[in-house]
Design a protein around this nucleic acid. Structure first.
Lengths: 224, 224
DNA sequence: ATATTTATGTAACATTTGTTACATTTGCAA
DNA sequence: TTGCAAATGTAACAAATGTTACATAAATAT
């Protein structure tokens, strides 16, 4: 049984009440399938013809990279879409495999039905466009960080972005150093070393997961 | 005067004949503006409320990065869209400035009108979704390359991607070493050095802009 | 054909970063 | 509290890359 209260909190249905979501889904002709842990949900081309939303459990979108290695693209939790930007991409050369990590249920809407839904409901259209546009923006930003030659530059750019968003010189960064190192594409001890250097030069102070920006001008020079 | 023959060759109108494009544009309530070289076409928030297509000339989309520096995001030539993924992004914190490089004319469609157009015409909807989805895919791939720790890994991954696309062990890469170095985020002499190493180890041969893959298995090992 | 610019090859050296290893601290659960 | 696991700090060393500089080759213009 589908709980439309819950589904209506999905980003794709943001701004719609549960009844509307129920109506929309029924005209769109959806399916719900259930999977055991480790089961394959979609293999290669299937995945590109359906909009898929996780309803329960947790799934991984995996991709074969150029060397033939499986890499995890994303882990998706309930009410988020699985690889939304793949649905309408021109060439789907990448085999995207989707597997369940836990006992999972997934909502499927066929591409043609979903297209009709987008044309029928402006809110869903806006939501979907926002989701894939934001993803694009996120990727662009990540490329900016990775583009910096030095670790110090990456850190400075990252902190200045957070500063811009949080509007506060005391930043709460709720990720571990390891995760930050992975995001910036560097080794964890290297990150720690550079953070220490930046403390010494007085551009910032760190207390646990709080990063306190002490010299914005200096950070801006370093993020070049 | 607008040449609908030309406009209909734009990716956003792919698959439509010139008459249909003319009709669609007129119901969508567009504007065309003309600019001299170096003129500002859109500043900050303006740019996020209009779909913009270059009709003549050449424009640059510039962005203020976190350190306050102007960076060129893209150069757009006739019939391509300007920053299409910004139109529907959730937060437009980035000030995107658009400037004319030459004598330029630009087509503007207001966001609300364009949304209506998307709902009215399935082809345009598919085209627009494909454009921003492909961009997402391009960015994801770039992040894969940047994610490799070593230059050799980046080169191997890049060449294997080209191999996958061209289906031929003799690849024609029509960019200079400098451009490839920039794309992979490394210094040009470093790239040349590693290319030389890869020639020596026998994984590839290079004649001008032709890259001949000699040992795919070895390349796949290196792209890990 | 010659000159001029652009692209590429290559070397020496400095710098940065990764690797490995271990100590220390913190958070959390028994 | 105590103990354990996770996160963080730190050091020595190796490896990779960037920087600078210049030589050579190719492409292009005159």
């Amino acid at each position: 049984m589908i709980n439309y209260e819950h589904i209506s909190r999905s980003p794709i249905f943001h701004g719609l009440n549960p009844q509307t979501v129920e109506e929309l889904l029924h005209t769109a002709n959806f399916q719900v399938k259930h999977y055991r842990p480790k089961a394959t949900i979609a293999l290669q081309d299937d995945s590109c013809n359906f909009l898929m939303m996780v309803l329960e459990g947790r799934v991984q979108a995996q991709m074969l990279d150029y060397s033939g290695k499986q890499v995890v693209m994303a882990e998706i939790t309930p009410f988020f879409l699985i690889a939304p930007a793949f649905l309408y991409a021109g060439k789907n050369e990448f085999p995207v495999n989707v597997v369940a990590l836990e006992t999972t249920s997934v909502l499927f809407i066929h591409k043609a039905d979903f297209t009709a839904l987008l044309q029928q409901n402006t809110t869903v259209l806006h939501n979907y466009l926002r989701i894939i546009s934001d993803r694009s923006k996120f990727l662009s930003e990540k490329i900016m960080f990775l583009g910096f030659k030095t670790i110090k530059g990456k850190i400075a750019a990252f902190l200045l972005q957070q500063y811009r968003e949080q509007q506060n010189k005391t930043l709460n960064i709720n990720i571990t150093q390891q995760e930050l190192a992975d995001y910036l594409g560097v080794a964890r001890p290297s990150l720690a070393r550079v953070l220490h250097e930046m403390k010494e030069e007085g551009s910032l102070d760190i207390r646990r997961k709080q990063y306190i920006l002490l010299n914005i001008t200096l950070l801006q020079q370093e993020a070049q």
